[in-house]
């Protein structure tokens, strides 16, 4: 896989979506706390895995066939169970999604938005590759920060 993984989510994209939250966010994001979680190659394509972050929370990591890597919160907001990483990855109208394995609710990987319930959302984490190692941002863009 030579295509470099790119950030799953750009801060600019977020500010476009929710201007209200733009002010407190530094677009340069230089203070983000990055954690190296695993080499890219141990992540199977379109088969999620969970990774533990230093604060004890977990993200679900997904590597797509295009090479993109996404990280979203691993807790299923509907059941409260840490299972999002076990969801099936696919697309809705070409947009990458994961389906919650317990209730089959569909979430957009890039935004965390739930397509079945607009009040639910997965937190999303920025992802970058350093060498062949996946690094995940500790910053979680929660509903609270998005909607103020």
């Amino acid at each position: 896989m030579s295509t470099p993984a790119r950030k799953s989510r750009k801060v600019t994209a977020m500010t476009t979506m929710t201007p209200a939250s733009a002010a407190p966010v530094d677009p340069a994001d230089s203070t983000a706390d990055w954690s190296a979680v695993c080499p890219l190659d141990v992540l199977p394509v379109e088969h999620g895995r969970a990774a533990l972050l230093p604060d004890g929370s977990a993200v679900a990591l997904f590597r797509l066939h295009t090479g993109e890597v996404y990280a979203v919160g691993n807790l299923d907001p509907f059941s409260g169970a840490p299972v999002i990483c076990h969801g099936i990855v696919g697309d809705r109208d070409g947009v990458p999604v994961v389906t919650g394995p317990l209730g089959k609710e569909v979430f957009e990987l890039a935004t965390g938005r739930c397509l079945d319930d607009e009040t639910a959302r997965l937190p999303v984490h920025d992802v970058r590759l350093t060498g062949r190692v996946i690094e995940v941002s500790a910053r979680r863009n929660t509903v609270e920060t998005l909607v103020g």
């Binding site: 919160g73 907001p77 509907f78 509903v143």
Partner: peptide
Amino acid sequence: PGPVSLGMPEVPAAEGARAR
């Protein structure tokens, strides 16, 4: 019992979720 409440901010809209 019930959706696990973990007191973490990243469990959004738990009320809505329970109502489902």
